[in-house]
Design a protein around this nucleic acid. Structure first.
Lengths: 225, 225, 225, 225
DNA sequence: CATGAATGAGACTTCATTCAT
DNA sequence: TATGAATGAAGTCTCATTCAT
């Protein structure tokens, strides 16, 4: 009897506990929305707190500064995605073309087509005024993402699926148009500019993948008569 | 006679006079550089004044607020360019394809390849926080530019050079890639991302024009046997 | 029997019990150390709790405010010492000179040469910003200590050992140099200032007592022929 | 007539100008009073501004931070005094004993007996929480003052007026009691403690100088019968 | 016209204290 | 009892804008 009796059952956390566990996520969500909406500098810490339903002080209980809050948002949205991608590249069994297609579709579904993509706009726009964030973003996002796509292409080359080419450059040819599109989609100004013509992202994605894969693949070249 | 006139020569203004006349331009130049570098919100009025070599008060003598200063910069860089373009469209005598190519080259030389292009980045990034500027930019830049390119295409259609198509959409297909490129070039983050692969803008421009013109032109359409 | 009693043993308190009883002392120790180190205002309540190994809330369970905590520290260090001194004065059987020497040695060993002495520095430095603490310190420390030394001197006078003199003034002549020294020892700045010359406190104490006792004693006055 | 007419007489500054010139001093005066009264940390920037009759922003126009304001106060009160003292030592023509007496009297009249002396209390009390100020005070006050008094003693030794002794230690024996007294006088707590007995500073000063000079002088040693 | 001193609203961040669990 | 999450007042510092000279 004694044995089974655990003094204070820790299974179902009390409401307060549950609240506490949810806080970081709630704050990150609020921060993401506001950063994307107004930019980094123009987002007030108190606003983030209010949107998350807590007081100013509580925000600082979880994140020691606005910069750290931003970093946390980046880590959660971009960092996690990249980590997942890297694992996918390492473990993937199929063809490299499939791997690339898979990567990009994940990217699109989990980032590109998500409010989180607005983060990129913020970085592009404000990073000059916050050198520490610039360094962070480079270290945490740009370099790893570059490496991830580079690895994917390298895999294709090593397996004889892709023809040899510089990894870094190929990776950027791959991502730049996608980032452009995302930048455009998350900028109000650009939305106005692009007006009614609004590229269909899904179609654009498909086309781009096709295009890139064709560029990468080892061609039988000229074929037979 | 000439001699006595020298006192208040209206032709060659005295140094002081020349200085005074140059003020607005000096202020606009300083403002453009700083807005592009740091963004709208992060640019301090005093900094603009210093860079132009005047005192803070003097800046407000010429422009009643930071927003008005920004508008003036936009008007001078984008507005003037568009006005010129409109006149060109109205007066052009050659083929519509030539007109379009001419327009875009002017755009590139006088704006796209100029620090002024950074203005677009600023607008994209911050316009949400300054609704009045958003409206202004739309009225003063987006709509007229849209109309200008639309008119150019319409001219081609009316003259039977281009095949019929929706003007608005065609205009955006024309400009969006160029704006993307410019956005990229003026964003430090994007420069990092694009790394060594750096698109050659001149080549991109040429290719794009070819592409668009081919899309616009009235094709004999495979046709007969 | 013994075994079953272990549950709520009243004699030897269970670890938990012992812990609870020790709490106030642990908190006071932590508070003393931090108050001396950083001053009253700059010491954070949470830090005190952490140093005592409890949570912030627990601190407030024992002391309703930071001021009350400070008072408790003062009472325990200075108040207890003075109470002891008063009892000593009341019960002492030997000569008044011995009593005075005894008092000062106790003061030195139990307070002056102890981190607790830093409290005095804190009071001197910050008491102006906390009038309630000023009143408290005066009531609880200054006045009783003054009375204690005064009583000691009065005893000497009444017994014919010391010559008549104003009690209050004598008491202060007695203590001021000691407090000066202690103030100096517990101030980092002063330590720098006094540099290599560092008074030897024990020697200083001895000398001072000699000096004061000589000043107090009834002298045969120039001697007779 | 024309000759005497200087277009904008720059002799008597306009009220605004006069105001501007006086500002730094007014701010330093206000800051000195408040720092001495409440300590460094407890003094609010806005309070200093108010006492000087200006707004919060104006204070920051003259001093970029509270720490810099404090440094400026120290420089003006202590730094200036030390600079003067050094010059006095260099130029003095009389005996070294006179020089020493002169130095100390200046010190007393211009610092010790002035509200400025409270600065020392503040440093002693709070310097631990502001390491940068600690370094500054050491560099700007303690070391130079030490050197100044050391030079004075060295001068006496070189001229055969004082007997040889370690300069640093002698300097501190000289100053420590004076600083103690000043510390005491500027601490409310200490004033309470010292109660009615209040050392007469002038007398104390005189006695101390006599004492030190006696200690320094070359003695004919016991003399002859 | 030109200056630059002055203002004050507002942003980030800290911390003593409370209170639901 | 004990915890530690939550609060909000308060403090430092910035900067667009005004205005006396």
């Amino acid at each position: 009897m004694n044995i089974t009796r655990s003094k204070t059952a820790p299974k179902e956390p009390a409401p307060r506990q549950r609240r506490k566990q949810a806080r970081p996520q709630e704050l990150l969500d609020a921060a993401l929305a506001l950063f994307v909406d107004k930019g980094f500098a123009a987002t007030r810490a108190e606003e983030v707190a209010q949107r998350a339903g807590v007081s100013k002080g509580t925000l600082y209980l979880y994140y020691p500064s606005k910069e750290e809050l931003f970093k946390a948002v980046v880590r959660q949205t971009l960092g996690a995605l990249i980590a997942e991608g890297i694992e996918l590249v390492d473990q993937f069994e199929g063809s490299s073309a499939d791997l690339l297609g898979c990567l990009i579709h994940i990217w699109w579904e989990r980032f590109g087509n998500t409010p989180a993509a607005g983060i990129h706009k913020v970085v592009v726009a404000e990073v000059r005024n916050f050198p520490e964030l610039a360094q962070f973003y480079s270290d945490e996002v740009i370099v790893p993402a570059d490496r991830m796509f580079g690895n994917c292409i390298q895999r294709g080359i090593e397996r004889g699926e892709f023809r040899p080419m510089p990894l870094h450059e190929a990776a950027h040819s791959l991502m730049a148009p996608l980032l452009f599109m995302v930048l455009c989609r998350h900028s109000l100004g650009c939305c106005n500019i692009c007006g009614g013509v609004e590229v269909d992202p899904e179609l654009m994605l498909k086309t781009h993948i096709d295009l890139v894969l064709r560029g990468l693949e080892v061609r039988p070249s000229a074929a037979a008569p």
